[in-house]
Write a protein that binds this DNA or RNA. Structure first.
Length: 219
DNA sequence: AACTCGGGGCA
DNA sequence: TGCCCAGAGTT
């Protein structure tokens, strides 16, 4: 397992590599962000950003989503995939906001998680990006990078990965670290073809060194 | 823990 | 073509 110091160093290096790392979902308020993040499950931000301009022009409030027929909302987001469930969740979620939160997006992670289509990952993104609360959202990229580098253990579950990251990273860096880990995972430490040969973290990366050794043998 | 939803991107 | 993707809910 990587030490706290090495972990912070790794996060810093990711920042050097991707200084632009931040949430890429287009939104102009917490409610729009919530909708965008719910839509982004299992698809790219670019895809979500293709439908949100029209979507946010048409739907401004939770009431708008509650009132629209399900089939119409499904058609509006058809191109992003998983659209049937996502449309149902957005209608349910909007209803809950009206019933329990006075139509406002709650700040607390636990309250966010009570909403349809919002799990721990989505709740963490919303609370940190929309409200600036410290949180580390663990998605497949964050999990993969953390395990390859040895920040956490290979057999850790998502919850354990999150706890370890929070323990090893200074609280004020959580939000930045979250996005750096994601950019690093998406563009550099990719699932299929990680760029180990040009990686600034190769020296401290167990998985990277293993892969380099393997590629030497195969060559 | 495994399964399902799903169109788009990429090799 | 086949495989994977900024996940969550159900069984």
């Amino acid at each position: 397992m990587l030490s706290k110091k090495d972990t912070q160093y790794a996060i810093d290096q990711m920042g050097e590599l991707f200084p632009e790392a931040e949430c890429e979902l287009t939104h102009s308020n917490p409610f729009e962000l919530l909708i965008a993040v719910v839509l982004s499950a299992q698809c790219t931000d670019a895809l979500v950003n293709k439908v949100t301009p029209k979507l946010f022009a048409k739907y401004k409030t939770p009431e708008d989503y509650v009132q629209v027929p399900l089939e119409e909302l499904q058609e509006d987001i058809r191109s992003i995939g998983l659209y049937r469930n996502k449309a149902k969740n957005i209608k349910k979620l909007s209803q809950s906001l009206l019933e329990h939160f006075d139509g406002q997006v709650p700040r607390e992670r636990e309250q966010l998680e009570s909403l349809a289509g919002v799990g721990r990952k989505t709740a963490n993104v919303v609370t940190s990006v929309a409200f600036g609360e410290p949180a580390i959202a663990v998605d497949t990229h964050v999990e993969r990078v953390s395990k390859r580098l040895g920040i956490c253990r290979w057999k850790d579950n998502v919850r354990q990965v999150e706890e370890t990251l929070m323990k090893k990273i200074k609280k004020e860096d959580w939000s930045d670290a979250h996005h750096r880990l994601i950019f690093f995972g998406r563009y550099h430490c990719k699932a299929q073809a990680p760029k180990c040969p040009t990686c600034p973290l190769l020296d401290m990366c167990r998985e990277g060194k293993k892969r380099m050794k393997k590629s030497m043998v195969e060559a």
